[in-house]
């Protein structure tokens, strides 16, 4: 009945008054749905869209007491300040490299894990490995970083313990800038690779077994089957995950970097978001921090749009 009414409405030419009447009718008819949606709407307006308008303070000399509107306009002052400061290149390089390493090394692990799990025929063993490997995903960043810091301690850490057994000198990894990225990426893989494999395992079970039988009849080896049946089967899932990962290159998680870094490793560890935190919240330079916020947001948006565009052209899979 709903659809019948809708289609007659579409065929009748709509005058302005009539269209307003239908609109009001539609509004009235969905009033209960709108009431259910209201808390959600309020949340998004307050905590997502209001801050977007708050970005305007990056063009002003924001003063906590004068508020957003009364503060003076300064144009691009803070952007110029940011782009001309030596921090800019360092932050860009750090953020970009950390994000890229995280994708390059972090993206293949769940795929490999899923492919391996898929070969296991002992259901119990498979279940056990899955259950165990998902656990770290639910451990907080504070605990993960705390563990990393403790395990790498040059005096009492387990890594130093094994170095001692091997007769090597202990290394204080945590204060050496060149070790920050490897440590971060390894910790991230440890935390999320198992959980990330779920989506590929689901994609693997969706592959038609007849494809394997056909390949078998054609005399394809296991290796050939992997390349020609399995990988194409999970390709759409891989592309989507890769796109999402690329989207997060620039806005890589704040918490873990913040917790893992220390002044000795700022040279490689300091990224946009940690800089924003120090500038804005620790030093109270809200406008400067916001300028970096907006810059990060725009670059991040450009990244995901480009990745999505390329992917749509090349593989027909895209986020939108």
């Amino acid at each position: 009945m709903e659809s019948a009414r809708a289609s007659t409405e579409r065929t009748v030419p709509l005058t302005a008054a009539r269209s307003r009447a239908t609109f009001l009718k539609r509004l009235g008819r969905s009033k209960y749905l709108l009431i259910l949606f209201l808390p959600c709407l309020v949340y998004y307006v307050l905590f997502k869209y209001l801050p977007m308008f708050g970005l305007v303070i990056s063009f002003k000399d924001y003063n906590l007491f004068r508020g957003v509107w009364a503060s003076n306009w300064v144009g691009l002052k803070y952007y110029r300040m940011f782009f001309e400061s030596p921090d800019f290149l360092k932050l860009f390089r750090n953020t970009f490299l950390l994000g890229v390493y995280n994708v390059v090394f972090g993206f293949p692990m769940p795929v490999v894990l899923a492919l391996c799990l898929n070969e296991v025929r002992q259901a119990l063993f498979k279940r056990f490995v899955q259950t165990v490997s998902y656990v770290p995903h639910f451990i907080s960043n504070v605990v993960v970083v705390g563990m990393v810091v403790m395990l790498l301690s040059p005096t009492t850490g387990v890594v130093a313990h094994f170095f001692k057994l091997l007769g090597w000198q202990p290394v204080n990894f945590l204060v050496q800038p060149e070790w920050f990225r490897p440590i971060y990426v390894i910790a991230d893989i440890w935390q999320h690779a198992g959980w990330g494999s779920i989506i590929y395992l689901a994609a693997l079970t969706a592959i038609d077994p007849q494809l394997y039988e056909a390949a078998e009849i054609d005399g394809a080896s296991r290796w050939k089957q992997l390349w020609n049946v399995t990988i194409p089967g999970i390709m759409p899932a891989m592309v989507i995950m890769l796109l999402l990962n690329i989207g997060h290159i620039i806005d890589i998680g704040f918490e873990k970097v913040f917790l893992l870094m220390n002044p000795a490793t700022y040279e490689t560890a300091d990224i946009f978001s940690t800089f924003v935190y120090r500038m804005g919240l620790t030093l109270g330079n809200y406008s400067y921090g916001t300028a970096v916020d907006l810059f990060t947001g725009v670059v991040s948006l450009i990244f995901i749009c480009t990745a999505n565009y390329v992917s749509r052209k090349v593989s027909d899979t895209s986020l939108w």
Binding site: K48, L50, P51, F53, I57, V276, G289, D293, S300
Partner: peptide, 9 residues
């Protein structure tokens, strides 16, 4: 894909 960032929030 886009948000107001840490300080405005």
């Amino acid at each position: 894909f886009f948000n107001g960032g840490m300080i405005p929030t």
